[in-house]
Computed example of a mutant assay.
Amino acid sequence: MATVSPALPPALRRKRRRERARTLAFLSPWLIGFGVFFLYPLASTAYFSFTHYDGYLAPTFSGLKNWDYVFTKYPPFWQGLGNTLWLVAVMVTLRVAFGLGIGLLITKVKTGAGFFRTAFYLPYLAPPVAATMAFAFLLNPGTGPVNHLLGEAGLPQPGWFTDPSWSKPALTMLAMWGIGDLMVIFMAALLDVPREQYEAAELDGAGALQRFRYVTLPNISPIVMFAVVTGVIQTMQYYTQAIVAGKVASGVIGGSGQQFESGYPHGSTWTLPQMVYNLGFQHYDYGSACVVALILFALTMAFTSILLRRKSGFLTED
């Protein structure tokens, strides 16, 4: 026979209600911000994706027409999706590996460590637009010093931002040049690894690679996970550098009345965030822009969820 729990005394019920009210009061700033800046925009985006809306007239329900248009009648979508996934796979991997390598080297330097830290961190402080324009001029296939030096050395001179096969590698080089943020994070993590573990590994006869594999990586794997997750989220939103590099390479760097091919050259730098801007603010097709935004959000959430499934990081076993 089931037992009935006794009713709480009125004084205890009032105390619990006050505690709940106090908790909600402390949480209210976050709850308001979460609702206003996340839930409401997300719900609005989902709603507009099923409507025809040009920003002027009231939205009208159109069912799945926007989704059908984006997936079957908008050719740049698949190219932009492929470019975005390429950047996520290649750019994030190389940035994490390069940042970790630079952090390892600087922590081993005996003299001049402060100079090298400053030299590698300064490029990260450069504004994205200015840094991209400078990089595009340096890699200019006709007048840039990089190709000039490659020619003097008898090496091939790529077209960089004017060549579809080299534009994304050039953007990756730009991202690696501004590696200062990851370098600082990895340096802090590396300096926090207990020295006793390295000494014990040396006594057991472990070489440099074995110490890195069995001592360094297990200790910094949460930081590597953080770098990968934040890198994926940032790269899925990749917009400024790609569009500025395309404009500079195509000769469109300012002024009105100039025509610019998005994703120059030949759509090789076309990304999903550019597509959202192009559809929504240039063609006033807010419904289709919301579809692309939802796809971008779903992909970001999927990648992040997959990466976070391993709580201790993907470099070590649970």
Rank of each mutant, 00 (worst) to 15 (best):
T45K: 05
R17K: 14
V36C: 09
Y47D: 04
W30S: 14
A46C: 11
I32M: 04
G33H: 03
R22Y: 03
F48C: 01
A46H: 03
S44R: 15
L24S: 07
R18P: 00
L42N: 05
F37D: 03
T23M: 09
T51C: 11
P10Q: 01
A7L: 10
F48L: 07
R17L: 15
R13G: 08
L8Y: 04
P10I: 01
L24T: 04
P10L: 03
A43K: 08
F38W: 12
A11Y: 08
L24C: 10
R20D: 06
R14Y: 06
K15S: 09
F26M: 10
F26W: 11
K15A: 12
P41R: 08
L57G: 15
G55S: 07
F48Y: 10
S44I: 10
A7K: 09
V36R: 11
H52L: 13
G33P: 00
L24V: 03
G35D: 04
F34D: 10
H52T: 10
L8C: 05
S44Q: 15
A43E: 04
E19C: 06
Y56E: 09
K15W: 13
A21D: 10
P29L: 07
L12G: 01
R14V: 05
V36A: 15
Y53V: 01
E19D: 14
A43R: 13
Y56G: 05
P41F: 04
P29C: 06
R18N: 10
H52Q: 15
S28Y: 08
P29D: 06
G35F: 02
F26Q: 04
Y56I: 15
I32T: 09
G33I: 02
A21G: 09
